[in-house]
Each structure stands twice: as C-alpha cells, then as structure tokens.
Design a protein around this nucleic acid. Sequence first.
DNA 1: GTCCGGAACT
DNA 2: AGTTCCGGAC
Length: 208
Amino acid sequence: RAARDLPWRNTRDPYRVLVSEFMLQQTQVARVAEYYPRFIERFPDLETLARAKPRAVREQWDGLGYYARARNLHALAKDVTRRHDATLPSDPEELIKLPGVGPYTAGAVASFAYEKPVPAVDTNVNRVLRRVFFDRATRNVQRATKVWELARTLVPKNGKRAWRFNQAIMELGALICVARRPKCPECPVRTVCRTGKSRRTDAQGRIG
DNA sequence: GTCCGGAACT
DNA sequence: AGTTCCGGAC
C-alpha cells in the first residue's frame, strides 16, 4: 500500500532483480538507487556483463564497498552464460549454487523475478517476524531456520500474492519495524503483533 | 565511536 | 558460532 516506488520493483527481468539484490545486500536503498541505473545502462544484460572486463565492473561498483560481491556477480554472469544458456535459474535450490547467492538472494530472485511462492528472509524480514510472532525470550534465541520455516508457512501459495507479501514485509521492516526505535504507533500490524501489543501501553521503552 | 548488513570462510 | 568485507547513519 504505502510502498515506495523503486526502479527494480517495476521489472521482472531476472538479471535486473539479481543486480539490485546484489547491491542491496550491502548497501541501503538510497545508495543503490544511485548506482543501479548506471550499472544497468552499462551492463544491460547477463551477456554484456559476462563479456565485460573485471576492471570495468569494478569501476561501476566503486564506492559501494564489498567488492567481492562485484567479483561474484561477474563470475556468476560468466557461469550462467556458459552453463545455463544465459538464463538465470528460477529454482532457489539452483540459484543458491551460484557465487555470491545465499539463501536470501536465492529467495528474492525466485520470488521477485519469477513470482515463485517462496519466502525471502533478509534481516528486515527476520526482525519483523521475530517481533510479531515470538516472545522476548524466544526472540533472541530463535535460529534462522525457525524463522524461515515460519516464513514458508506464511507466504501465499499464489506467486503474485507471494511477491507482494515479500515486498510488504521488507517494506515494513525498512520503514516502520526498524532495528533501533520501531515506530509501533504507525504500524499496520500492531494489533496482531506481540511487540506492538505490549508497547501500546508502554510510554516508549526499547525492544530487547 | 558504534551499529548495521548477506554471504563465505574459519 | 564468530569473523571478515565496506561505507553510511546516527
């Protein structure tokens, strides 16, 4: 509903989704918004990126940090161009085998590009789910796999709904259910959220 | 000065 | 389970 309009949300092109996710792994939205369009213009598709010189890729990435990810992305492009006929896999199990692709990025590409009904748990989503569904004691101890299990049960079975669901939770985590001082009074799910409920009566305590 | 963030590696 | 990478926000 109150989602921000971001360039990589208006596409289902797997390559573009992949690039945005690689950038977002390490950097905040505002900064990615600055780099992403230039990168896409310079390397519009996987083949172009695969053919590019490491130097050129690095230059486009300069200032974003975590340069190993740029190398991974480049290696991935070469990999996929060679082995998968320049088409990114749609299955998270396959995606995760690619360099620089972990559980989150695999889920994100599968959902945001291919509209597969799979969860994508980044730290935002992780934080939101833990606050909403787990009590304070459990929250600190919950293993990541538990949150993924929960996310799997929550994601709509319909791919388009799953896409919106994943985007919505990430947006919630990024704008409202932020790490430091969550804005519970503005939160649309506060009435069903453990944390939101307990905080409604509090003046403004911190979240443990 | 401290916290934040995915994946990879120890 | 803890560390590293890198730059920005606070």
